[in-house]
């Protein structure tokens, strides 16, 4: 059975990391990096989420099937975003602006 008992020490470590990353993302937001701001903010958020998913949600110790399905959820979200933005970002390329 896939009963994995996480150690208190590990859970506390993750907790502290999450708090530290929250402070970091707030602090970084006040510096102007232009377009990079959003990239930094989302990277930190993605890293925080990964910590939660892997350790709090036990995916790190889960079966291969759990990995596949957890990954599929995020992959499909990416598909939705990529193809939707494919439309919006390429609209200015058109020589005809309206029809």
């Amino acid at each position: 059975m896939s009963t994995h008992v996480a150690s208190v020490r590990l859970l506390l470590t993750i907790f502290v990391m999450l708090l530290a990353l929250t402070a970091t993302t707030v602090a970084v937001a006040y510096f102007d990096f232009g377009r990079v701001n959003i990239v930094v903010a989302l990277s930190i958020a993605a890293f925080k989420s990964a910590l939660v998913v892997l350790y709090f949600m036990h995916v790190r110790y889960g079966s291969r099937l759990t990995w596949v399905f957890a990954g599929a959820g995020f992959l499909w979200l990416v598909l939705l975003l990529v193809f939707t933005f494919g439309d919006y970002l390429s609209r200015p390329w058109e020589s005809v602006t309206a029809w």
Partner: peptide, 15 residues
């Protein structure tokens, strides 16, 4: 929430 927080609260802080 980890995504909502920066996307809503933080994107306008700089500049």
């Amino acid at each position: 929430w980890i995504f909502l927080f920066p996307l809503l609260y933080l994107i306008g802080r700089h500049g």
